[in-house]
Amino acid sequence: MSDRCYMRVATHMPPGHVRTPAYLRGKVGWVERKLGPFPNPEQLAYGLTAETARLMRVRFTMAEVWGPQAECPDDTIDAEIYAHWLEPTDPPHAT
């Protein structure tokens, strides 16, 4: 699956309104599809004029998100994440 575009979710936990769930911070997934652009909700939430933000649907395996606690490692979670939370990365090593 070398054509997959892998991304790591930023690990920071800023105060305030964000749409990136805590359980996905620092996890690596691949882009399932690109969406948007949308006005940045981190500005809209405060009544500010919002800049345009790119949005992606990123797919994570349960094994990546929950490690050994995963209920079924190959099941997946898809989430919409704004591009400024994502950094291109290598695929996770197969174990």
Binding site: H17, P41, L44, Y46, G47
Partner: peptide, 12 residues
């Protein structure tokens, strides 16, 4: 306001 403003206050 926006739905994001609604969510912000709910989550806070």
């Amino acid at each position: 306001f926006t739905v994001d403003g609604l969510r912000r206050v709910l989550e806070d």
